[in-house]
Amino acid sequence: MSTQQLFIPDWIKTGFQNRQGTYTGKFAYVIYFDGKGTLRKETSWQS
């Protein structure tokens, strides 16, 4: 993989939810802002 293909975001957003379907009862997530400032996977994160 060349360094031109690797994207390291400047900003990320994290959080967790209490969820019954997991081993610990918690579900954590990390999403990131792309180069245009758009929050990636925002629609799936909000639901």
Rank of each mutant, 00 (worst) to 15 (best):
M1C: 12
M1K: 12
M1T: 08
M1L: 10
S2H: 06
S2D: 10
T3V: 14
T3K: 15
T3R: 15
Q4V: 11
Q4H: 09
Q4E: 12
Q4A: 09
Q4W: 07
Q5M: 10
Q5T: 14
L6Q: 12
L6I: 15
F7I: 03
I8C: 08
I8Y: 06
I8E: 03
P9C: 03
P9L: 02
D10K: 11
D10H: 11
D10P: 06
D10R: 12
D10N: 11
D10Y: 02
D10W: 07
W11M: 08
W11K: 13
W11R: 14
W11F: 11
W11L: 13
I12R: 05
K13I: 10
K13Q: 09
K13G: 00
T14D: 11
T14F: 08
T14I: 14
G15I: 07
G15C: 00
G15R: 04
F16E: 12
F16M: 10
F16L: 11
F16C: 09
N18V: 12
N18Y: 09
N18W: 02
N18A: 09
R19I: 02
R19H: 05
R19D: 00
R19P: 00
R19A: 03
R19Y: 01
R19M: 00
R19F: 02
Q20P: 04
Q20A: 06
Q20R: 08
Q20G: 04
Q20H: 05
G21F: 06
G21S: 13
T22Y: 06
T22H: 01
T22R: 01
T22M: 00
T22N: 00
T22G: 01
Y23C: 03
Y23V: 09
T24E: 00
T24Y: 02
G25M: 00
G25Y: 01
K26A: 02
K26E: 01
K26F: 03
K26D: 00
F27E: 09
F27K: 14
F27N: 14
F27C: 08
A28F: 11
A28Y: 12
A28L: 10
Y29Q: 02
Y29P: 06
Y29D: 02
V30K: 02
V30G: 07
V30C: 03
I31V: 11
I31N: 05
Y32C: 02
Y32V: 09
Y32S: 13
Y32M: 10
Y32W: 12
Y32R: 07
F33N: 06
F33P: 01
F33Q: 04
F33I: 11
D34V: 08
D34Q: 01
G35T: 04
K36R: 14
K36W: 04
K36H: 07
K36Y: 09
K36E: 11
G37H: 00
G37T: 04
G37M: 02
T38L: 07
T38H: 09
L39G: 04
L39Q: 03
L39T: 07
R40F: 13
R40Y: 14
R40S: 14
R40A: 14
R40C: 15
K41S: 15
K41W: 13
K41R: 15
E42A: 13
E42K: 11
E42D: 08
T43N: 14
T43C: 05
T43W: 10
S44G: 09
S44P: 04
W45S: 08
W45A: 12
W45F: 11
W45N: 12
W45T: 13
W45Q: 13
W45I: 12
W45R: 15
Q46W: 09
Q46V: 10
S47P: 12
S47G: 15
S47D: 15
